[in-house]
Design a protein around this nucleic acid. Sequence first.
DNA 1: CGTCCACCCTGACCTTGGGGCAGGGTCAAG
DNA 2: CTTGACCCTGCCCCAAGGTCAGGGTGGACG
Lengths: 258, 258
Amino acid sequence: MAYGLTIGQVAAFAGVTVKTVRHYHRLALVEEPERDSSGYRRYGSSDMVRLVQVRTLAGAGVPLAEIGGLLDAGPERFACALEDVERRLTDRIEELIARRAVLHRLAAGDRLLLPERACVALDRLAEFGFGAAYVAMQQEALVLARALVPEVFDRFLIQIERQLGDPEYVELLKRCQDAESWDLDDPRLGELARALSAKLLSHRELLAMPAEFRARPDAATRYGLINHHREDQAPAAARLNELLEANLRAAGVDIPHQ
Amino acid sequence: MAYGLTIGQVAAFAGVTVKTVRHYHRLALVEEPERDSSGYRRYGSSDMVRLVQVRTLAGAGVPLAEIGGLLDAGPERFACALEDVERRLTDRIEELIARRAVLHRLAAGDRLLLPERACVALDRLAEFGFGAAYVAMQQEALVLARALVPEVFDRFLIQIERQLGDPEYVELLKRCQDAESWDLDDPRLGELARALSAKLLSHRELLAMPAEFRARPDAATRYGLINHHREDQAPAAARLNELLEANLRAAGVDIPHQ
DNA sequence: CGTCCACCCTGACCTTGGGGCAGGGTCAAG
DNA sequence: CTTGACCCTGCCCCAAGGTCAGGGTGGACG
């Protein structure tokens, strides 16, 4: 029986695990004590003191990499460094609080990551009799729009609300939904495209595209992503959109290519 | 030039790094898209939607391991899980705030991890003319005491304050400090031990050891650690302590062994 | 005397959310 | 033809330890 505490004892006294003590040894935060005849580490009170100091700082959130320098430095640098650590901790707390706020908004009103107003618009779509798949697609388009051009998202919503407030436009939208199942060479596609472009051209407020959108780098790519979302799953809708864009371009409207 | 966005583009649009997108692929949070003829990943709008959803949740602090299940579950489980995440986040924030408070106390009054009152006592020691090494040793002993028997630390301090308030006892302490440099067989050691024990026995309030201390598991070990701290560096002090303990035990005081 | 259990040893791999680097292929422009 | 900006895979790295494997020790019990 040798003198000194075993690693399990110092660990228990300091309130850490054995593994943690060994970890501190590897990081040279606490010096390795002498070993007894069977190779066990035997700790004295000085080691305990050091271990308690390290654990106190670590428990307060000081990164282990800094603790060594901190404890071996003078009191003035010690205080200074502590202040620094405290500042960083405050930043982190504020960041977490911001995160929690985001989460809270998500949990409260947002349906799969959209703000309240967008959800209302989507609900109105459903009330108008649009199918779940169609509504889901529009929802995804909104998610895309919000991510790709956040600064015009609000105006985007206003436009959608205007469109939903126009019964004639809603009727046309319903035909668009039906069109998804039509053949690619169905003559109704051309008719519908014509009707849509006529409506849009005579009610330009339904069509306006903000300058900010155009000012963005990759505006065309962003536009394409939002506007041609899911077209791969509905070739007729793609065709319809293509015809519509051609009509609008022919009338002088500037629509990004691709 | 193939259709679809490259990984760099989706990453930029979603506000993450390329590396992060690939990381999400490896965790199966976002499906791997088709590759083009040169093996590049080509992303469509659906991938963008998914990526944005993942990033939004990840940015809010939801662990990546949970995001997959969350997005693929129904809205009710989604909301429920979000609440759970929010709760955990709140816990974490409170923990960090507590840490910051500890840090703040450390930075404010504590000299190398001791509360204000202990620092005052140590300062008084220095004012009484004790050497820096001696004061440092007492300080470490206090750190040890606080770690090993926190619930009696306050009474420990009271006792020290009492001792410092007794000029006769302070004089004896000073001789103890001097004694560190004496020879092991110096007859003054025995005299000093006798004087100390006489003083303590006639002023029991300087000596009392709380019942809580004794009630602790490993009380003897804890006592030894605190009381024999640094004795390895001052053999004469060890000898002095040994003599003192013998005197006290002979007078019926119960002192833990080892 | 043997056996059991708790403790100790080292070393290697796992976690989170990616970052960085090596080594090599591809694309578009000058 | 070269250059620079992308892309590919695969490997190792961070903090702060946790966990597991495989083996040695110490003290208590029968």
